[in-house]
Write a protein that binds this DNA or RNA. Structure first.
Lengths: 336, 336
DNA sequence: TTGAAAGCGCTAACAC
DNA sequence: GTGTTAGCGCTTTCAA
């Protein structure tokens, strides 16, 4: 490993001078700078970032904590963070929380040991108190996909209620009157907000949504399938189905076809998230676009900005609005 | 920030003693150890990993370089690495190469600056010379999804040829005689091997595969669609279609249905990779399972092992075999 | 414009 | 058992 000393020795200068030319210091003579640069190139010298971090206390390192990278949604989130990090010349430290409060905490601690200046956290289960405490301790902490009024300027989140309302209104405008909903058994966070949006829109339109027409299951394809089967078994009549997310919507489509119903001719189905799978099913899924990757890059830049405590943080909110993506799983309500 | 000095002062011992109890040193008195531990807990002391890395030259940090995290395949890869890292108590540094040789190199360099001891690299475009040089310099470097005989014991790869043969043989055994193939325009790496496997099996079975029945396109859904349209436009007759990967297979299914052909009744389609999308399409895709996540964890453990140069590396090969996953997109050849 | 030197937080000899 | 001390590679005063 070639160190700053080696460079200094070969170039015949002091290590201070080498350090200066690395930092583009203008207080170095032309000839000297050129010589040092040449030696650096020849030796292939690269500053040791640990040493640098130790003395300067600035690591240019950013951490992300997400539940599980193998889920496409979080892959996109990570990708957005990576983009933001790269553009700002930051390194990216990554840790999965596996949906557990304990490993989430461990993940965060480990990032702090590394002097991460900025942290992007996707937390569903940690309670507000923990998060608030964390936010106080780490200036560069940004929450993604969660909103807490007390630290509003450090939350990058999606208006799930508005998204669900857009989806519901769209179905209403297409003439649908009989709705069913499949959602997650865990109603805290996103699922709860989306259900709320659905309820609001339906109520405003004077439409009924009986509790029996709301089926809870796991938030994946299998869950979607089971939920629809349950709905069908109960004899619920519906021409429009709102799913908590794309995966459930796709499971629903499978179950619907299996039951001899056509999508969208008999039943219109709408998803939420706009994952890549939504273009894989047939019919292609109409859904609400969740701009995760964009939000993640945004959150990254925000976190980096906030980590510089010399800058007064703006007290603004960072809210994104999901957009409807029309594909082929929704049609006008059939004339009955 | 609380340092080892603070702990020493409060506990009334020297920093060396604190360091010893941290490292579970058995050369510390019972009472003393207990007291130090108590102080550590009270103060919430956590060792600074940069300082630690600087002096001990061991960072317990592992890096991954993949093209793009938002692609489900790489998300799974990253997830597997994360698992391996977590299990070995390593931190994970992540960098996207975006399919460019230049940023791939930058990504690797940045990992080296951080004293990563182990690196998992998914490289498609770097040439062998570069890779070989890198491997020589970094003992803990492991290549995933690429095989180079010179460093066979540091490659974790998939037998694409065998996988393609399995897929092809399966179709042959189902009575198919008229084959078509859709593959990537880039034939280096995976696509080339898979095509080779197809050719081998077909030849062995005495079946023809005209060049016209092989259509190249981009390796995604759109590409799959276009390729099938091109095949159809050319008037190619086929009852079995082998796709380079799941995404192309799904695009193919869309195009087939659009053309009034049924899958699998008229045409059987088989994919490769077994991404989550393969369960999203209808019919569900029969495909070859690529155990990325498992391979990635394996590669991670291997890299960590190799990075410890005191251990003699085994000179074995790390080859994984894809398995057939039967779902609903393949049927017996129709009687003509 | 350049160099000497202090010190970031920690580990690991080496003393006692 | 426990303390003292010399660095790890670097940045950053402070002098010259």
């Amino acid at each position: 490993m070639v160190t700053i000393k080696d460079v200094a020795k070969v170039a015949g200068v002091s290590i201070a001078t080498v350090s200066r030319v690395i930092h583009d210091g203008h207080q170095v003579g032309e000839a000297c700078r050129a010589r040092v640069k040449k030696v650096i190139a020849e030796l292939g010298y690269r500053p040791n970032s640990n040493a640098r971090a130790l003395v300067s206390k600035t690591t240019n390192t950013l951490g992300v904590v997400t539940p599980k990278l193998s889920m496409p949604f979080f892959g996109s989130l990570a990708s957005g963070v990576e983009k933001g990090a790269r553009e700002n010349n930051y390194k990216l430290l990554m840790s999965n929380s596996l949906y557990e409060t304990k490993s989430e905490q461990e993940a965060i601690d480990s990032l702090r040991d590394h002097n991460c200046q900025a942290i992007i956290l996707h937390s569903e289960y940690s309670d507000e108190k923990t998060l608030l405490k964390l936010a106080k301790e780490i200036p560069g902490l940004v929450l993604i996909n969660r909103y807490m009024p007390a630290i509003a300027n450090r939350c990058v989140w999606l208006d799930n209620v508005a998204g669900a309302r857009t989806a519901t209104d769209y179905l209403i405008n297409r003439g649908h009157k009989n709705f069913a909903v499949i959602t997650s058994i865990y109603q805290n966070g996103d699922p709860g907000f989306r259900l709320q949006g659905i309820r609001e829109s339906l109520k405003l339109a004077g439409l009924q949504l009986s509790e029996a027409a709301i089926e809870e299951s796991t938030a994946n394809m299998e869950g979607g399938e089971q939920a629809v089967q349950a709905l069908l078994n109960k004899g619920i009549q519906f021409t429009a189905l709102l799913a908590y997310n794309d995966l459930m919507a796709i499971g629903a489509i499978h179950a619907l076809f299996a039951a001899g119903l056509r999508v969208p001719e008999d039943v219109s189905v709408i998803g939420f998230d706009d994952l890549i799978v939504s273009r894989a099913c047939r019919p292609r899924l109409t859904t609400m676009h969740y701009p995760v990757e964009e939000m993640a890059s945004y959150a990254t830049k925000l976190a980096i900005q906030l980590s510089d405590t010399s800058i007064e943080p703006e007290s603004r909110t960072h809210l994104f609005i999901p957009q409807l993506v029309e594909r082929d799983s929704v049609a006008d309500a059939p004339r009955s």
